[in-house]
């Protein structure tokens, strides 16, 4: 079947401009069908039952599968979601293994999904600063193979569609409230060494301050992010860019000028 770019573009515009959730679902179903897929799913990778209403969670999966998925909070451990955190762009599910090691539990979940009506799929990662990671997935009924001719448009349409959903939810409301706190230089320094595995005493020796000072800086950093344990600072400070992975795991001692 010949791709009709103008038609796909028009369907994408309808998704972008949908006035409410019902119109959005309808437009998204039409776009999904035009892209030769059976299902769509746009989601922030959270447990929707605890994340509250300010999260994107829209799909047309079979109801019994969606119920099972929600009951077991699979959104936060779904191998498709985990792979999307590493994939550079849209990927067919056959390539999940390129990005993460599939556990027995993952394989079980994918098989279970197939038995409940969701076969192969194509997932587009959505990573936005200040928000939980998300994705837009287009999926097939079991037995229907992905047609690679449609994936390029799916890749771009999925991104516009996700933004359309964000607009409906209120883009600003989606921002994680605890992110983007600003730490003092000393707080940041102490925390960085703590994340590198140093004890408060070790940090005090490295930074040439007292152990009490180290403790105080770290407690104050916890207070700024409103958490009560230092380990709880790791995820938000990585997510908001206060620290980078390489800063924590890839460091070398440069104090001797080497």
């Amino acid at each position: 079947m010949e791709q009709d770019y103008i038609l796909l573009q028009e369907l994408t515009r309808r998704v972008q401009g949908a006035a409410n959730i019902e119109a959005y679902r309808e437009a998204m179903a039409a776009l999904t069908q035009a892209l030769q897929f059976d299902y769509f799913a746009l989601a922030h990778h959270v447990d929707p039952r605890t994340a509250g209403e300010h999260t994107v969670h829209l799909h047309n999966y079979p109801a019994h599968w969606a119920d099972y998925y929600a009951r077991h909070a699979l959104g936060i451990c779904d191998p498709v979601h985990r792979a999307s955190h590493f994939a550079p762009g849209g990927f067919p599910w056959a390539r999940i293994g390129d990005y993460i090691d599939l556990t027995a539990r993952d394989l079980h979940m994918l098989r279970l999904g197939a038995s409940q009506g969701v076969g192969d799929g194509f997932t587009i990662p959505i990573r936005l600063e200040g928000e939980m990671p998300g994705s837009c997935t287009f999926a097939m009924r079991p037995g229907r193979p992905l047609d690679s001719a449609w994936l390029a448009f799916a890749e771009i349409a999925g991104r516009f569609a996700f933004d359309g959903a964000r607009r409906l939810m209120g883009r600003q409301e989606l921002r994680l409230p605890m992110l983007g706190r600003i730490l003092t230089r000393c707080q940041r320094e102490c925390l960085l060494w703590a994340f590198r595995g140093k004890s408060d005493w070790e940090i005090s020796q490295i930074l040439k301050v007292t152990e009490g000072t180290v403790k105080r800086h770290i407690l104050n950093a916890c207070a700024r992010y409103r958490v009560n344990k230092r380990i709880m600072l790791l995820a938000p400070t990585l997510l908001d860019g206060t620290f980078s992975i390489t800063e924590i795991y890839g460091y070398r001692d440069t104090s001797f000028g080497t």
Binding site: P88, P125, I126, L128, E129, I156, R159, R166, R171
Partner: peptide, 10 residues
């Protein structure tokens, strides 16, 4: 680049 595109839309 498409990853940046999502941010542009945002």
């Amino acid at each position: 680049e498409l990853n940046w595109l999502s941010q542009i839309l945002a």
